[in-house]
Nucleic acid binder design. Structure first.
Lengths: 250, 250
DNA sequence: TGCCGCGACCTTACTAAGTACGAGTGTATA
DNA sequence: TATACACTCGTACTTAGTAAGGTCGCGGCA
């Protein structure tokens, strides 16, 4: 009745949990998690809403599923490699991934049912530090510090109205305009005018600075800090001149 | 008829925007933002749903309003004071405030319509650093670094199932149990057993460590770093009392 | 061949939310 | 007393999630 896979219309790929979750990510990427409803998802998949429930128990399971898929996209650090390099690679990967799935940032940490990719990710993270000589305690410090920073940064970054220099400036302008006496906030005004609204302003560039600060600090806390000097923190000049993370690669 | 029988005197405190927002915070604190609906809010206030709309245009305005109230609760840093002390005080205050309003953390940065308390907060933050001799650029670094950390940490902390040592351990246990072969994640397992599940484990204690790392690093980046040695990063016995990176002495 | 069961997908319908519209009620002032 | 306005509420429309159960095609099996 409906249409057996005859000529004109599209071949019917059988639905699956994977297709459901992939569709959910597409919808969320396009319109935010707010746009992810069973109905929009069904539309994206070309099916009727209730069919989704053949593959997932409820919407929460969809959320858990796509969060795990996001974790799966993040580059895992490799235990045994130079830990700073690995941490830096993972951090940059995480930032990139979260930038392409902005809706995920507040969810990553808050799910109570971690999936396999999530567990594998945490496992690799911890293993990398332990293999580099971090004590359990220092690993805990590093975990909290790095991930608070990385996820917090992603949160801030994704909160920016739109990305790209010009739109930030536009937004800042209109914000300052409509919110009455900007003169009540002189420091904020100066900061906005002299920094945020500069044409070459790019908040994303701040990421490297903080990351370097954090990794260096952890390096000095390592017991066998074998003379390896910490990499230069990208001193005050804004550009962290392509941080060569001081440690020799193996 | 539901009304109390105090016919003559009008016990009824007149509704107001303030009461609406305060009620919204109460509801959100009790059951999370998910529990905040116009209907639950009306119930909390002892009124009917539509009455709310006399004081706010829509639910979004309620969210904007309560976010600004949360900012208002955070201790402002005082420009002119010792900047590390001020930053530390503000950070601890922010953490406390966010712990009492866990629903707010993902919202703080993402609102497009900052209220007066929000602007005042940012203004005080920036002014404090500028007054301490931070260049505009270093202020931007510090802003991104500190706030990413503070909000990121709050995000992680609030994501913990419940607060307090024992419940974390319980959760970790059940997580490891139900998620099949914990042996696929040996480092995670070790970490969980030897650290997370220790009876005296308290994630919150990590906060000071990271905050100190960050403030010290910023201190060394300050041009007039008047010989003041950075404070010791706390805990972690095994560490050389070495000044953190950035000292161009090398 | 005809029936059965099953997996995949769909129809209907119930409930909870946000909120538009406009009517009731009380108080202040003309 | 009449009019105006502020505040509050009743009704109803719309979009969510999802419970219950229906339909259809296919591959066994008597």
């Amino acid at each position: 009745m409906v249409k057996p896979a005859n000529g004109s219309t599209k071949e019917r790929i059988p639905l699956s949990r994977e297709r459901v979750l992939a569709g959910a990510i597409t919808v969320a990427d396009t319109g935010g998690i707010g746009a992810l409803t069973i109905r929009t998802l069904a539309q994206e998949l070309g099916i009727k809403p209730m069919s989704v429930y053949h593959y997932v128990a409820n919407k929460d399971e969809i959320i858990d599923g796509i969060v795990d898929l996001v974790y799966a996209e993040i580059n895992l650090p490799v235990p045994g490699g130079d830990w700073q390099t690995e941490m830096r690679r993972r951090a940059n990967s995480a930032r990139r991934v979260l930038a392409s799935h902005p809706w995920a940032t507040p969810l990553l940490q808050s799910r109570l049912h971690p999936g396999p990719a999530t567990l594998q990710h945490h496992n690799a993270f911890i293993a990398t530090l332990r293999a580099a000589g971090f004590s359990v305690e220092l690993t805990a410090h590093a975990f909290a510090l790095i991930d608070s920073y990385v996820f917090g940064f992603a949160l801030s970054e994704n909160a920016l109205p739109i990305h790209g220099p010009e739109s930030v400036a536009d937004t800042a302008t209109s914000m300052m305009e409509q919110y009455f006496d900007a003169e009540a906030y002189p420091a904020l005004l100066e900061f906005t005018l002299e920094h945020i609204m500069r044409p070459d302003y790019d908040f994303g560039e701040e990421f490297e600075y903080g990351l370097t600060v954090i990794l260096d600090a952890l390096a000095t806390s390592l017991p066998d800090n074998g003379g390896a000097p910490p990499s230069q923190p990208p001193t005050t000049p804004s550009k962290p001149a392509k941080a060569p993370s001081g440690t020799p690669s193996k």
